[in-house]
Simulated scan of single mutants.
Amino acid sequence: MRPVRGARSIRWRLTLLYSALFVVAGALLLGFTYFLAASSKGGKAVTSVEGQGPMPAGVPGTLDPPSVNAVVEAVRSDQLHELLVKGCVALAVMALASVALGWLMAGRVLAPLRIMTSAARRISADNLHERLAVAGPEDELKAMADTFDAVLARLEGAFDAQKSFVANASHELRTPLTLQQAIVDVTLADPDASTDALRAALGRVRAAGQEQERLIDALLMLARSQRGVERREFVDLAEVVRERLPDAGVKVEARLDPAPVLGDRQLVERLVVNLTDNAVRHNLPDGEGSWVSVWTGVDAAGRPGLRIENSGPVIAADQAAGLFQPFRRLGPERVRKRDGDGLGMSIVAAVVAAHGGRVLARTRPQGGLVVEVGLPAYVPSGLEFPVPA
């Protein structure tokens, strides 16, 4: 991209603006000065010579008072005209000088902007780690440079996350394919394979295909969640949770108060399913007192929410935020067991972000997790829900 030159450049526009303002101010000053000079009185009319009484008319070598007054007015008019002409000439000369000075000042003011533009052109997807790093006073240009650096930092993070996501997704998709190929190769290598062995191999191939299908469905759901909410309607979060509470495997404690939400029902249902499945799947083994606690209601700020707490293995507190990253599994049980696709909590975070809500996960010292979700409230037309004190 070539730099903008000529009359379209902002430097020329600033120069012309400075010059125009100078010419307008100079013209107003000249007009005001001329008005004051023209409106001032030239003195008293001449009618007599001081100490000699009235001037006699017709005396040789003398001018009668009307003639003297006419001469004074003529001289005064010439002086005003000369003032106007010289003032206009001076204004024209200074207008030309203001163009040169305006060009220099505009160039000095825009110098940091040219440096930032040059540095920004050198930054591409391969070197997003570079920054403008503009030094100088805390003015508008430095604020713009700092904002641009912040945008670059977010872009760098997004690119890194995208690369990591593609690498992880490729790995997760390749794992069942590799397993299927290995099962088929082992089965074909045995010329005496029985019918039962072939059926068992086909069953394992089908299971691997189903795992791959679940992963693809999860990827599609994640993409849809990140696209945003296309339709918003009334959803009772308590009703959705009540329909999808786990009914076996763990002890469930539920307190489901009304929680009217404005959002997409399918996405909200997927959020609840992922959270409940995650709480059951990553829990203590059967017979060791595993439990899940679920709460829905309206918090003190008037926001409907969902809180799911479960027992489970101990996880470091600083690892809780990583749960919402794709293909992240925390804790020893989450690493050893591959009964999840690693996208459940990522979909939860995407659904909450699409609705403009908030989600927070924290670990329990005794083991397990607490996940809190807040979503926008549904308010019927003309009505408002009271905010608890």
Rank of each mutant, 00 (worst) to 15 (best):
S194P: 07
A150D: 06
R231W: 08
D257L: 11
P258E: 07
V373M: 02
E130P: 02
V4C: 08
G287C: 12
I10A: 13
M144W: 10
F22I: 01
P260K: 01
Q52T: 08
P332I: 07
L132A: 02
S290D: 11
P386D: 07
R265M: 02
G263A: 11
S293A: 13
I123Y: 01
A161F: 01
E253D: 12
F324S: 00
G61M: 10
V335K: 15
A201T: 08
S293Y: 00
D217S: 10
L220N: 09
F35W: 13
V250Y: 02
A248I: 07
P112C: 07
P326V: 10
Q79V: 12
R108G: 08
E213L: 09
D190H: 13
V273Q: 04
W291V: 09
G340N: 07
L104M: 14
R131I: 14
P65H: 05
L128C: 08
V348D: 01
L63H: 04
S48E: 14
R204W: 04
P246L: 08
F32T: 13
A279E: 01
L17P: 01
L271A: 05
S9V: 06
G102F: 00
G51C: 02
K337E: 09
V68Y: 01
V109I: 13
F327V: 09
V93M: 13
P191T: 07
I315S: 03
F234T: 05
A169C: 09
V294W: 00
A95R: 06
L155C: 10
P66K: 06
D146T: 09
R270E: 11
P258T: 08
R214Y: 11
P176S: 03
L284R: 08
E50A: 12
N69F: 01
G287A: 13
L219W: 02
G287W: 11
E82L: 15
E253W: 00
P137H: 07
N168L: 09
Q226M: 05
G249A: 10
V23G: 03
A207S: 12
D277P: 07
N283L: 10
P54L: 04
L262A: 11
Q266N: 14
G26M: 08
